[in-house]
Structures are given as structure tokens and as C-alpha cells.
Design a protein around this nucleic acid. Structure first.
Lengths: 265, 265
DNA sequence: GCATCGATGTTCGACAGCGAACAGACCACG
DNA sequence: CGTGGTCTGTTCGCTGTCGAACATCGATGC
């Protein structure tokens, strides 16, 4: 059933979910809808089932820039869980589809009444912060082509569909580049038979090929929208040794050096 | 007293602060210390008094990039408040100075025991998310010079000092550019008598001049570390007709258009 | 004072992305 | 069935940043 397609909700004990469900209204989000505008009041939250919402920030005099992507793994409206009723970003429906909506009041009440909800939302907030940080670096360092590939794959994962409506113009707003830059990159992919597109429709043909063209960010934070780091009371340092990503091609671990000469005066 | 220099703590009722203070240990953070490494366990939290910690993300094969800056307005270790005991970013001490430290266990206990603490931390998490998003756009769109000016001003505000130790090399890691790019921009500022520097020391001479050279991001999310910034996207020159926000220099409000043609299939 | 190392200055070619303008292709609608 | 508007292709010069290499200058320790 569609209601359970949202991973965040699905992670709750069934009893709690049923409890919560009374306040949930199935809706269909439509491409182009703006759910939140920066600094405007948040009136309801959304749990995407098979749709996709972009979080955008806008720098004055420039393009918009996507800083986060919310699909069935998360929810729209996390600031409410932090006690703030506005959003720092614009939330734009980017792939239409079914979602579950809940009013602000009901959501706040549910946070108090249903003990398993808050931890789930918090874990998602944590994951979202990581995603935003990762996206920031990606947007700074990687070329349009790699970012486009990453974006297409992430969208595909969240929409569970290999085809979606999306113009180059629109994409340029997500990636923070010119429309021409998107067209260039897309044309390249089409020539390699990785994708095909026409007038606002894009279809992914060769998923693995696209993955090869995408930057590593996709492998790190893109796929597997469902997984969220678990908190172990004991602390879990042993588990993950690496992830300390190499810093740059030329050794620059100097940044960690103890710097006897650079102690603050 | 130095302990109260942290705005987050100072926002608590005095009684709660005194209660909390028993678990706080005054420490001096030293330039270059790494408090957290991505995906490693968080063992304690820090409340900066007059020091500065950078949150860095690392894209593989590239430079580091600062995505957030924490001074006396915030704390280090917010994931704990979300029930997660690891950090998605590296936390690097960037301006040494006094801070208050608290063990993970005590902090978690305090969150339960002191009712005013959680809302304060949550409000800060919200502000931090806004800052990260804003920084992402800034890093994407603005030239090195403007970002350098912004960075210097933000650092000055948080360190409450017009002079600090900082090499161009180090700065390049914060801004995500080459060292030479920083040197260029800095040389320009020095020639204009906005700053002066030598061998790892930078002094701000003309604060207002720097502000003029900085991107608007500084005015929107940079200064006034004490108050939770009501973050506004880019310009907000008064009458931005609400939901329409200008998207780029050339009219592009088409992004919101009702899209009868672009409804998902 | 001298050696050494770290910090900064300078230069080179290369290139990704920008801003602007225009042309062609395709679709929806009248 | 044509027409208008949208989407995509293509071009131009320009600028900011990159990568690499090397030169100099100043502080620090011997």
C-alpha cells in the first residue's frame, strides 16, 4: 500500500504508524509546486511516497541551487521537529507523485504522543545535514557532466523510475549552471547511449554507464535513500575506519599537523 | 566570566545554566586540533567562548571545503542532540581560544534533565542548517575575493578580534580554492589597505571596506553570531513578490509556472 | 650570523563555465 | 494545417580558476 512506501514512516513500529496514520492525508504532489518558500511559515509536513522534492537555496543575483533532495527516504518540514516553523530553503516539487500530508499541529502533537517518531525524524535530520554538506562540496568541485549524472541517478533511485519529465532549463537551476552547460553534458550522454531525451522527457538507458560518469558523491551519499546511521550508545568508532577520504591528489594532511608555530597567541 | 561568553548557554535561564555548569570543563582549544573526524564517534561536545571551529567536508580527490563556522553562538557536537553519535563533517579548530567541554554522557543526561537546553540546541541546529545551505550557494557562485572578505569578517565577528593567525594555505582549504588564489585576493585587499598580513598573521584594517568587498552572504548569515539568524535567501530586496523569487538575472519565474504541460505522467 | 624551513610572490598555459545571441526542431492548440 | 511558444543546438569572446613550477622573503633555531 502506498502509504507505507515512505521509509521514514515504515521504520516506525506498526502500532505507532497506525496511530500516526489518522493524521495523514494522501495527496498527489505536482511538478512545480512550491511547498515552502524561505522564511515563510510551514503549515504542514509531507512524507513522499514516490515523488521527489528539491531543497533550493538562492544566492542573490544568481541561479538557484539545489542543496538537498528529499524522496521516500525522508520528509519535508523537518524544522518543525526542531521547534522552528519556517524553512531556510525553498522546497520545490521536482518529480510529481503520491505523498502523505499532515498538518503542523497534528505533527507536533504526534511528536509528543508517539515516542518512536522523534528519533526517526532526528535520524533523518542528521542524514539530511550530511547530504547538504556533501552536495556543497560536490557543487564546488565537480564538473557539470559528473554532477548531471549524479543527479539523474539520484532522481531515478527516488522516483523508482528510469524516465521522468525534466527540461534542461529546469536542470540548470538544480545544478546551478547555465542551461547550455546542461545541454552540452546531456548531449554527450545521449551520444554515448547512456540516456535519451526529448523536449522535457529524459530516460535513463544505461544505468551503469551513468554511474561511471558520475562523481563519487553518488556512491557516498546518493543511493540507498533508506539507510540512516544507527546510534549505538557505546559509540562505534571501530566500525568505519576509512571514510576519511583522501584529501587531494597531492598530500595535504598537513592540515592536521600539530603546528607548534601556529598556536594562537 | 568566560563561561557565559557562549551565547547558546547564555540564552538559558540562569538556574538551568548553573545546573548545567557542573558538567562543563573549561578548556583551551588549539589551532589545528581536529575535534571530530567524519564518521568517527563523538565523545564530547564543546561550547566555544571566544574561539572558532570550522566544519569541513572533503570531496575525494579534492581540497577540503568549509561548510559551516561555529563560534560563541553555537556548539560542536549537535548530532548528539539528534541521537546520532557521529559527525558527518570534520570539525577543525581554526581560531584557538577558550571553550567549555562536556562529555557525551553528561550532555545526553542534561538534555533530559534540563528542559530549556533542548530547544536552545534545536534552534541552533536549525540556524546551522541554514548556514550550511547558504555557504553552499556562496561557494558555488561567488568569486574568491568576495568569499575571502566574507570569511575574514565572519572570523573577526566570532573571535572578537581584528587579528588572527592564518596562512594563505590554510585559508585555501576553507574556501576550497588554491593557495595562489587566496594570495592574489589577499594582496589586492592589502593594496587597498583593507587588511595587512605577514607570515601567518592577518589583521583587518578597514572593516567597512571589507564589507563592501564581501558578498551579500555576509550581511545575511554572517554577522551577529549571537542571534539566531533569520536567514534570507540572497537578496530579499523588499518586495520580492513572495513565491516568485527571481531566479537569475534574466527573468526565470517560469520555474513556478503551473505546468499543465509538465504534470508527471 | 647562518642555515633552514615555511610563507608568500609570480608566472605560464589550459580549460570550464559564463553571458549573450540566434537558429532549428518539435509540440500543442486553435 | 498552420502558428506560436517551448525546448534544444550552436556559436562567440571572456573571465576566473586550475595545475605546476620556481623565486623570494622572513622567522626560527643553532
Amino acid at each position: 500500500m502506498a502509504a507505507l512506501q515512505n521509509f521514514l514512516l515504515r521504520s516506525l513500529p506498526r502500532k505507532d504508524y497506525l496511530n500516526l496514520a489518522r493524521g495523514l492525508t494522501p495527496v498527489t504532489l505536482v511538478f512545480g509546486d512550491v511547498l515552502y518558500e524561505p522564511d515563510r511559515a510551514i503549515r504542514e509536513v509531507y512524507f513522499p511516497s514516490a515523488c521527489l522534492v528539491s531543497l533550493l537555496t538562492i544566492a542573490e543575483g544568481h541561479r538557484a541551487l539545489e542543496v538537498g533532495m528529499v524522496g521516500p527516504e525522508g520528509m519535508i518540514g523537518v524544522p518543525l521537529a526542531l521547534g522552528v516553523a519556517e524553512s531556510p530553503v525553498r522546497a520545490l516539487v521536482q518529480g510529481g507523485g503520491p505523498a502523505l500530508r499532515m498538518s503542523k499541529a497534528r505533527f507536533l502533537a504526534a511528536l509528543r504522543a508517539i515516542p518512536s517518531l522523534q528519533p526517526a525524524v532526528f535520524a533523518y535530520i542528521y542524514a539530511l545535514m550530511g547530504q547538504i554538506a556533501q552536495t556543497a562540496a560536490c557543487n564546488r568541485f565537480h564538473v557539470v557532466e559528473a554532477r548531471l549524472a549524479r543527479w539523474l541517478l539520484m532522481t531515478r533511485d527516488r522516483m523508482s523510475a528510469g524516465e521522468f519529465r525534466m527540461t534542461h532549463e529546469f536542470l540548470s537551476h538544480m545544478l546551478g549552471v547555465r542551461r547550455e552547460g546542461v545541454s552540452d553534458a546531456a548531449a554527450g550522454f545521449q551520444q554515448q547511449h547512456l540516456i535519451e531525451y526529448s523536449r522535457g522527457k529524459i530516460r535513463i538507458l544505461d544505468h551503469r554507464g551513468l554511474e561511471a560518469a558520475a562523481c563519487a558523491c553518488y556512491r557516498h551519499s546518493g543511493k540507498q535513500p533508506g539507510h540512516i546511521p544507527r546510534w549505538r550508545p557505546g559509540g562505534n568508532q571501530a566500525a568505519v575506519p576509512p571514510t576519511t577520504c583522501k584529501v587531494s591528489t597531492r598530500g595535504r594532511s598537513d592540515i592536521r599537523r600539530s603546528n607548534s608555530t601556529l598556536t594562537t597567541p
